[in-house]
Amino acid sequence: MRPPVLEATGLGVRYRRGWALRDCSLALPAGRVAALVGPNGAGKTTLMHAAVGLLAPARGSVVVRGQAAFVAQDKPLYETFTVAEMLTFGRRTNLRWDQPAALKRLAGLDIPLDRKVGRLSGGQQAQVALTIALARTPDLLVLDEPLANLDPVARHDVMRAIMAEVAEHGLSVLLSSHVVSDLEETCDWLVVLNGGRLQVSGDIEDLLAGHLVLTGPAELAGTLTGAGGSMGRVQVVAASRTARQVRMLVRGEPPLDPRWRARQPGLDELVMGYLRSPESVALPGLAQVGR
């Protein structure tokens, strides 16, 4: 087992207007592709900035084992530079730099080196930014909304490129996105931030297998949640009800009462369930409780 590529312990970051991140403890296993999701202002960018050393935490710590490369969401490139000048800039500002690999990537993508960055398409700019990050031969690639503002074809192309790098070099990835469906096939670790607090961190397959969507008559809801009830093995993450029916996202074993219908949630249902109930958490320390 490789040690975690990123480890945060009691991490807190404070801006003038208040805490952007509070008491955040998580460990990302090496070789994984981790999705960082949460609403605007949840602290996603703050966590990424702290991880790559762009800002200093007020509390706790965050450590990356090895080299991290970061691609910012807005304008990671200089628009007046040519692609070749961006590479030269990268080479001069980084100790680790694989120029042949960068040139090979750009040639493979048919991106002209003499073109000004500002004249490239959005998809090409994203690929140049990714190429520059990869030329630093990182152990952890941190991408802030890498798919935002890209058309579907460019989104697919960028994801293909990232996945190929993971397959080839075994690097770890932490990427943020608003669109959960973009992450469904590509990510295998989920981190949910909400209001500056960590809600979920875990293996996606384990999380999906450990949760259920239950649908049943409204009067049954109490049998699940009642303190000390016979159904004490489930933890209700989120519930929505109509007059007669209740639908719940729960964690734990399926209830025995046959009036419940149970199925596995999708990734988007899981994420929405947690985001709608900020007090619910699914973190490694708690994962053992239900088992």
């Binding site: 293909r160 996945m163 190929a164 993971v166 397959a167 096939e185 590509t186 990510c187």
Partner: peptide, 17 residues
């Protein structure tokens, strides 16, 4: 096909392959 070849065409996680 190798994991790299598959993920490069489908944009999926290599661990899935």
């Amino acid at each position: 096909p190798t994991a790299r070849e598959v993920v490069e065409s489908l944009a999926i996680n290599p661990n899935t392959v």
